[in-house]
């Protein structure tokens, strides 16, 4: 602010506090609900203050799941989510680094074609080609497997473009100096290019981890065995039952557990997160 106007400043603070409250309120309620016993939701007046059942609720969902809705222990689902998120994030980064390296540091027939093939994936989100993609994965026998959960999602035009963009800003002379110094392509890639990409890789990792963790439709389609349920899709199955059996305490405990890892990643790595978000949209 250029002028010193206390009223304006106060309004701004009020707007922000209202915003923070709006953003936080649903989560607050979820946390509160996860600390009550199942009977507290019968009365019709929702509790607004914490109850005494937090430990037992979380212990129950983590260790044994919800047998009435056929839900396995949340700890299993969270492990699945973690495996899926890590495989997707690391897989996307690795194959995108390699393709961007090929496209920027080599000239070869069909280079433009390869670039466009990768580009086209931007226009084919999984949501719009659900049935045929499911058929392919089913034919390959990848249903109910970690490979099926992650591999079909690890092509990444966005990550490839990000690395391509970054590689183009790396001075040409670095590669030339490395060649004079006797480094071949892969040596240059590992010794020079990879260390220089560290920040970009970390920023992208944050975004892709969240992307992988929050996958919903894909695990829903290709898992029928509860051994491979991920936590985000598992909530839906729990919530379905919650309408008839009021198990809101366990559903909300699961909700809290499902958002905890990605939210922690964003808060702890805020700088990298912002960088990753802004750069992937370029």
């Amino acid at each position: 602010m250029i002028e010193n106007r206390p009223l304006l400043k106060l309004t701004a603070h009020l707007v922000l506090i209202a915003g923070v409250a709006l953003v936080a309120f649903p989560v607050y309620l979820a946390i509160i609900a996860s600390t009550h016993g199942p009977t507290d939701f019968m009365s019709g007046v929702i509790p607004l203050l914490p109850g005494p059942h937090a430990v037992e609720n979380y212990r129950q969902v983590l260790a044994s799941g919800v047998s009435t809705s056929g839900i396995p222990p949340i700890s299993l689902m969270m492990t699945n989510s973690l495996i899926m998120a890590l495989t997707i994030a690391i897989g996307k980064i690795v194959i995108s680094l390699l393709s961007a390296f090929a496209i920027v540091y080599f000239r070869f027939p069909f280079r433009a074609l390869a670039f466009w093939a990768i580009f086209v994936t931007l226009m084919l989100p999984v949501e719009v080609r659900i049935v045929p993609t499911f058929q392919v994965v089913a034919n390959l026998g990848m249903l109910n497997s970690y490979a099926g959960l992650s591999i079909p999602l690890i092509a990444s035009a966005t990550a490839t473009f990000l690395f391509r963009q970054f590689f183009l800003t790396v001075p040409d002379e670095l590669m030339e100096a490395a060649r004079v110094d006797g480094a071949g392509p892969m040596k240059f890639f590992f010794d020079i290019l990879l260390p220089l990409s560290r920040t970009n890789i970390a920023a992208l990792f944050v975004i892709l981890f969240i992307y992988g963790w929050n996958q919903y439709l894909w695990p829903l389609l290709i898992t029928t065995s509860s051994d491979y349920y991920t936590v985000v899709m598992g909530i839906k199955r729990m919530a379905d039952v919650a309408d008839s059996y009021p198990q809101w305490n366990t559903v909300m405990a699961t909700v809290v557990l499902a958002m905890l890892p990605p939210v922690l990643v964003v808060i702890c790595m805020q700088r990298l997160f912002v960088k990753g978000l802004v750069e992937t949209e370029k």
Partner: peptide, 28 residues
């Protein structure tokens, strides 16, 4: 280039930014 027994000094120096001075000189 590496097989020609030459060394080159570039206009923008082309030092490897993530390596120390010592590592830069030792790399080749």
């Amino acid at each position: 280039p590496a097989e020609r027994d030459i060394a080159m000094v570039f206009q923008n120096y082309a030092l490897y930014p993530h390596m120390t001075v010592r590592a830069n000189m030792a790399y080749g």
